[in-house]
Simulated scan of single mutants.
Amino acid sequence: MMIMEKSRTWLLGLLPLTHSRFSHSTFLLLTLRCAHFVVEEPMVIGHECAGIIEEVGSEVKALVPGDRVAIEPGISCWRCDHCKQGRYNLCPDMKFFATPPVHGSLANQIVHPADLCFKLPDNVSLEEGAMCEPLSVGVHACRRAEIGPETKVLIMGAGPIGLVTMLAARAFGAPRIVIVDVDDHRLSVAKSLGADDIVKVSTNSQDVPGEVEQIHKAMGADVDVTFDCAGFNKTMTTALSATKPGGKVCLVGMGHSEMTVPLTPAAAREVDVIGIFRYKNTWPLCLEFLRSGKIDVKPLITHRYGFSQKEVEEAFETSAAGGNAIKVMFNL
């Protein structure tokens, strides 16, 4: 076990709240829900973090005080069938930062298992280390979808997860990536980060046929794999319609808990639908991508704040307002 050094922990990944009350690092969230996880009492949030080790337990051999580490935020049981088979992200007894009822890492110090703390390469900053968490989602999605040098990729949604999925797909060798969104600014960011083409769409489901034509024109070839990083009826409908026969659609976002989508036509074209939940065994690869320069996450960090009461409130307001905010970073 280890404790992270006070004032040197980096944390990011704010929830889009519009009304919050703050008391030090405890936040009152009234009606926050993600799938079947529901906040029912005040809790500390935060799950994207890195820091410097202050103390280690007697059995810790690979790390020492002073080491800079990126932190994987989920502690699985290692006893259930999922864990024994290596799919520990599906562990039913997972204790995951900021997932009710487990408190998160938005604090001056945390205690965490040593085998979930990954030493940062010398040329990787604490900020980049904290970004390993969202990047892991994209890496896990690319592994599930078997992205490679011959895979042409469509991404629905140019939010933070869509962008890290795009960066991961490129690192896995995808030769052409088209990204779709409703927002001009997000699309411009995606283009600046390396998207081969962008397509602006609407929220109107009646527009799907025409938008699929635009997507095919932008891709200039068949869509092998589509990542739906939004998870709405319309985005999934577009994904299923745009993907080639025999292709794959990977559902990453969870915008809707239930969807009505054209599965029968997709099944008739043998389009495989796969899902992901968090990630597994991704931190070493994420750190290697960052060390080697194959992925640069620094442009995704758009705002930085300290950890005073005033700065915390301002950070949450910035995140809630949207605008040009992608990732909002706390420096503790």
Rank of each mutant, 00 (worst) to 15 (best):
Met1Phe: 10
Met2Lys: 01
Ile3His: 12
Ile3Pro: 00
Lys6Leu: 07
Ser7Val: 00
Ser7Arg: 06
Ser7Met: 00
Pro16Ile: 00
Thr18Ser: 13
Arg21Thr: 15
Ser23Lys: 14
Leu28Phe: 15
Leu30Tyr: 09
Cys34Ile: 15
Ala35Asp: 14
His36Met: 09
His36Ser: 13
Glu41Lys: 14
Glu41Val: 00
Val44Arg: 15
Cys49Pro: 00
Ile53Cys: 06
Glu54Pro: 00
Glu55Asp: 14
Glu55Phe: 11
Val56Met: 05
Ser58Tyr: 04
Lys61Val: 11
Leu63Pro: 01
Gly66Ala: 03
Asp67Asn: 07
Ala70Leu: 08
Glu72Asp: 12
Pro73Ala: 06
Gly74Ser: 14
Ile75His: 05
Cys77Lys: 04
Cys80Lys: 10
His82Met: 14
His82Ile: 09
Lys84Leu: 15
Gln85Gly: 15
Gly86Ser: 08
Pro92Phe: 11
Pro92Trp: 12
Met94Ala: 14
Phe96Trp: 13
Phe96Arg: 05
Ser105Cys: 14
Pro113Val: 11
Pro113Asn: 09
Ala114Gly: 02
Asp115Leu: 06
Asp115Lys: 09
Asp115His: 14
Cys117Gln: 02
Phe118Met: 08
Val124Pro: 07
Glu128Gly: 04
Val139Cys: 01
His140Ile: 08
Cys142Gly: 12
Ala145Asn: 01
Ala145His: 00
Glu146Tyr: 10
Ile147Arg: 01
Thr151Pro: 06
Val153Arg: 05
Val153Met: 06
Ile155Val: 14
Met156Phe: 08
Ala158His: 11
Gly159Leu: 12
Ile161Cys: 08
Gly162Thr: 09
Gly162Phe: 07
Ala169Lys: 05
Arg170Cys: 06
Arg170Met: 05
Gly173Pro: 12
Pro175Gly: 06
Ile177Val: 15
Val178Trp: 02
Ile179Glu: 09
Val180Met: 10
Val180Ile: 15
Asp181Ile: 12
Asp181Cys: 12
Val182Asp: 04
Val182Gly: 04
Leu187Ser: 01
Ser188Val: 03
Val189Met: 13
Val189Cys: 06
Lys191Glu: 15
Leu193Gln: 06
Gly194Leu: 09
Val201Lys: 01
Val201Tyr: 07
Thr203Glu: 07
Ser205Glu: 11
Asp207Leu: 07
Val208His: 05
Val212Pro: 10
Ile215Asn: 08
His216Asp: 01
Ala218Ser: 11
Val223Thr: 10
Val225Asn: 07
Gly231Lys: 02
Thr235Gln: 05
Met236Ile: 15
Met236Leu: 15
Ala239Arg: 00
Ser241Glu: 15
Pro245Thr: 07
Gly246Ala: 07
Gly246His: 07
Gly247Met: 12
Val249Ala: 02
Leu251His: 01
Leu251Arg: 05
Gly253Ser: 03
Met254Ala: 12
Met254Arg: 02
His256Trp: 06
His256Cys: 13
Thr260Trp: 06
Thr260Gly: 12
Pro262Gly: 11
Leu263Gly: 01
Ala266Cys: 08
Arg269Ile: 04
Glu270Thr: 12
Tyr279Asp: 08
Cys286Val: 12
Cys286Lys: 06
Leu287Ile: 11
Leu290Trp: 03
Ile295Lys: 02
Asp296Tyr: 03
Val297Pro: 01
Ile301Tyr: 03
Gly306Tyr: 13
Gly306Pro: 09
Gln309Asp: 15
Lys310Leu: 07
Glu311Thr: 09
Glu313Thr: 14
Glu317Arg: 14
Thr318Trp: 02
Ala320Gln: 10
Gly322Glu: 10
Gly323His: 08
Lys327Thr: 10
Phe330Leu: 10
Leu332Pro: 11
